[in-house]
Design a protein around this nucleic acid. Structure first.
Lengths: 145, 145
DNA sequence: TCGAATGAGTTGTACTATACAACCAATACC
DNA sequence: GGTATTGGTTGTATAGTACAACTCATTCGA
């Protein structure tokens, strides 16, 4: 298989697809190990809400390609746990702006700590350049289309 | 943030974690769009079985960090669909060796075609070198520990 | 300016994915 | 030969998800 051979691309493409999928399949187990107290999806949405200070349910659904009903229930669960609060949007009464509560921010900080430690561990022997490039590739891949 | 600053590493690590998670959250929706006839996990396991010609349920559980009961049910579903068959292992009567049936191989080929096309599309403007490196990074990340 | 179309969110319902525990059967190891 | 281990199934419970039908608020067009 020489350089420029279309099969070389296909091999890489297949590997990328396979490895991304394997990662996705394992994500739940990893999350359960790292923060058994906070379900995986709840954690993800809470992190996004915190990151985007003041996002809407629809934004979450769009970002993660989830149905709005799914997000609605997830938010309800997070609210019940006291981790997220809804604020009415004065400009558009259909909208609820989501914010982490103090408890939410704390919980997130704690679990984010252990998550980051785990990922950092796993990436401990990577050069800074490789980390950077890997991060860029993922961003580029995810932002396509 | 200068080079060598530990925070530079953390930024990359956070991005990697965030983007991998985002990908994982979207995987189901993507799969549903690409092959509505074959549920995501079924597809993944079938692909692995095909790849590893003759693997055991336990191997699947190990590879994807799933409980053996989960795998057992998934295999049962694939068998019911006529996509996988179990062959007894003559050396160890506890073991069932899993193989794709002809129908399984066909189904896989069809869906794999559309999947690969989608990924290839999304990676169309990547240089071969970038593809290669991205694939390597993913392999390296997934094989850690 | 009113009625239709659109958009945000909720709720009913159903199904997939998953884990844990208890179990059975075959094998391996003293 | 008895005990521990391993591969797999089944019962049960829960998370995660989609789709459809709904409500309420907003916008837009005639």
């Amino acid at each position: 298989m020489t350089a420029g051979d279309p099969r070389a691309r296909d091999t890489s493409v297949d590997t990328i697809q396979r490895e991304l999928t394997a990662f996705a399949r394992r994500a739940r187990a990893t999350a359960a190990r790292l923060h058994p107290e906070l379900p995986l999806v709840s954690y993800t949405l809470l992190a996004h809400i915190d990151d985007q200070q003041g996002c809407r349910a629809t934004d979450l659904a769009g970002h993660y390609m989830l149905d709005k009903s799914t997000v609605s229930r997830q938010i309800a669960a997070l609210e019940k746990l006291g981790l997220v609060e809804r604020r009415p949007d004065p400009d558009d009464h259909r909208v609820q702006v989501l914010h982490p509560t103090d408890a939410g921010t704390e919980t997130l900080a704690a679990t984010q700590g252990s998550r980051r430690a785990a990922v950092r561990d796993r990436l401990a022997d990577w050069s800074e350049e490789d980390l950077n490039r890997f991060a860029d590739y993922l961003l580029r891949y995810n932002s396509a289309h």
